[in-house]
Amino acid sequence: MHCQPPPEQVHDLDALDRRLIDSYQRGLPVCPRPFARIAERLGAAEDEVIARLERLQARGVLSRVGAVFDHARAGASLLAAVAVPEAERDAFAELINAAPGVNHNYARETQGRAPLAQDDPAGEHDYNLWFVMTAPEAPALEARLDALEARLGVPILRLPMLESFHIDLAFPIPWAELERT
């Protein structure tokens, strides 16, 4: 399982905290004195807004107040997966993490029995390591994947994005519902 700290008690977040998150997860004003502008809109003081953001960040409710970059405009990348025996998963993960260009790596389990892997007609294991490979441009991306594939000795499923229907990570937080959980 995840080894993150347990979820926050949202009860501790008051109306101003919630309005800050709701209003600014989609974007801060990129203007002089941005926190004064936010304060004006929320009817609070600038130093109060800054203190709240500091506290939310320190508690981990906000992962950061900062820029969100567009991967697709920063070179080539694709989603990749391999199917490896569960017992050897961490050893494979270590090789993947050490490869140049890998920036996410998640262990995933498929719900139910799913014989999916190319080299696995018996269905003994599914694609269980999922990672994002990046490179300056497409040929380098292929070369990095080829090199990693040779090192791993198992085929890498390559799933470039063909079309994006939705890339906005912000979604409304249902505070009242969260309070009941």
């Binding site: 989609r26 981990g60 107040v65 900062g66 820029a67 990570l169």
Partner: peptide, 11 residues
């Protein structure tokens, strides 16, 4: 488009 937005990013 290099920066998608500057935001308070919730965890």
């Amino acid at each position: 488009g290099v920066i998608r937005r500057v935001a308070a990013v919730p965890n």
